[in-house]
């Protein structure tokens, strides 16, 4: 398709060249949906006429119409894999999209809402973390043990100072 020809009667061509068709039709803006509908021949007569006026007046739209009709009528080669991979990466997973839109609290509420088990799971996890942390820190037993150890240390130190005083008195009494 899209071959060009040069075998038309020169008189017809010359006549057309002497004419200015720019003002012959009223041109209105066309959106992509409407343009696609026209290419498929789905517009009614009045709509099609209005659109054909716009296409006739715009060389770019004339080329676009022929290109689209041609591409749609031919077998298409596969796209490069790189193109597909990059395009797929444009849209992330749903959780990422939802999280980005709603913020943390919105995401948390949304995540918890669908199931009654989720709040329970969160509670259990919180308890496990608290107990684990408490245990790693030694718990109440370790705390009492530490206090007891401190008391014993003071008592032992006190006892050692009494023994030391007795020895000093013994040496002193011998005149040493």
């Amino acid at each position: 398709m899209s071959t060009q020809r040069d075998d038309r009667p020169e008189s017809d061509k010359e006549l057309w060249r002497r004419l200015d068709a720019d003002g012959a039709v009223e041109v209105q803006p066309v959106d992509e949906m409407e343009f696609a509908a026209w290419i498929e021949g789905r517009l009614n007569e009045a709509e099609a006429a209005r659109l054909e006026a716009s296409v006739a007046a715009d060389p770019e739209m004339r080329r676009a119409a022929l290109d689209v009709a041609d591409i749609l009528g031919m077998p298409l080669p596969a796209a490069p894999q790189r193109m597909v991979v990059q395009a797929r990466a444009l849209v992330g997973f749903e959780a990422e999209r939802g999280g980005a839109r709603m913020g943390f609290w919105g995401w948390l509420v949304n995540w918890m809402a669908p199931s009654a088990l989720r709040p329970a799971a969160v509670t259990m996890a919180a308890i496990a973390i608290a107990v684990g942390g408490f245990t790693m820190g030694g718990g109440l037993g370790a705390s009492f043990a530490q206090q007891q150890s401190d008391v014993d240390g003071i008592q032992k130190a006190s006892s050692r100072s009494e023994v030391s005083a007795d020895i000093s008195e013994f040496f002193a009494s011998d005149g040493i």
Partner: peptide, 14 residues
Amino acid sequence: ERQTLILRYLYDEE
């Protein structure tokens, strides 16, 4: 409009 379009394609776009 269609006549204009066809003449455009035939003579302007060849």
